[in-house]
Amino acid sequence: MYALIKTGGKQFKVAAGEKIKVEQIAADVGQEIVIDQVLAVGNGADLTIGTPLVAGATVKATVVSHGKHDKVRIFKMRRRKHYQRHGGHRQTYTELEIGAIGV
């Protein structure tokens, strides 16, 4: 069984037992959260698509850890104008372990 969920402005295809990294969620490590924005639920050849969400479907997940992704380097330059700017960004994430998918 798998589900399409929406969290942090992104969509993820998840199944029980998988680990995914999503945008930071305000929850403690070890805490169980319930994601109720389920766009579709599939089981083999069966597929239930929501309009826009599947009514009554939930995905339970446990927070494994919080962290930061690798640094993205930003370099701006205008040739012949003596202009250079350096910057960087590290996006924070929350790692979730998917538990039960309820319909």
Rank of each mutant, 00 (worst) to 15 (best):
A45L: 13
G9L: 11
G99L: 14
L39A: 01
D46W: 04
G56H: 13
V63F: 11
Q84E: 09
G17R: 07
T94E: 02
Y2A: 09
V54K: 11
V41K: 03
V64P: 07
I5K: 03
V63K: 07
Q24I: 13
V34M: 11
G56E: 10
I98S: 00
V34G: 00
A27R: 07
D28P: 00
T48A: 14
G56C: 11
Q11G: 10
G17F: 09
G88C: 12
A3V: 01
F12C: 08
I101T: 02
V54A: 07
K81I: 01
L39S: 09
I49P: 01
A55W: 00
A3E: 02
F75C: 06
A40V: 02
T58F: 10
T7A: 05
L39P: 02
M77D: 02
D36C: 03
G50K: 10
H69S: 14
T92H: 14
R79F: 06
A55Y: 06
D36N: 15
Q84N: 04
T62C: 10
Q91I: 06
G9A: 14
A16L: 04
Q84P: 00
A61K: 02
R80G: 03
E23N: 14
Y93Q: 05
G67S: 07
K81L: 02
D70Q: 15
V54P: 01
G88I: 08
S65I: 01
A45G: 10
G99C: 05
I20W: 05
Q24D: 07
E32H: 08
V14C: 08
H89D: 02
V41S: 09
V63L: 14
E18G: 07
K68C: 06
A27K: 15
A61V: 08
K76E: 08
R90M: 13
V22R: 03
H82S: 15
Q84L: 13
V34W: 01
I49N: 05
A16F: 04
V14M: 04
G99M: 08
Y83W: 05
M77C: 07
L47P: 02
Q11K: 12
I98G: 06
A100C: 00
K10W: 01
K76D: 09
E95H: 03
E18H: 13
A27P: 02
H82P: 01
V22D: 01
Q31P: 05
A40T: 00
V14Q: 10
H89Y: 15
V34C: 11
H82M: 08
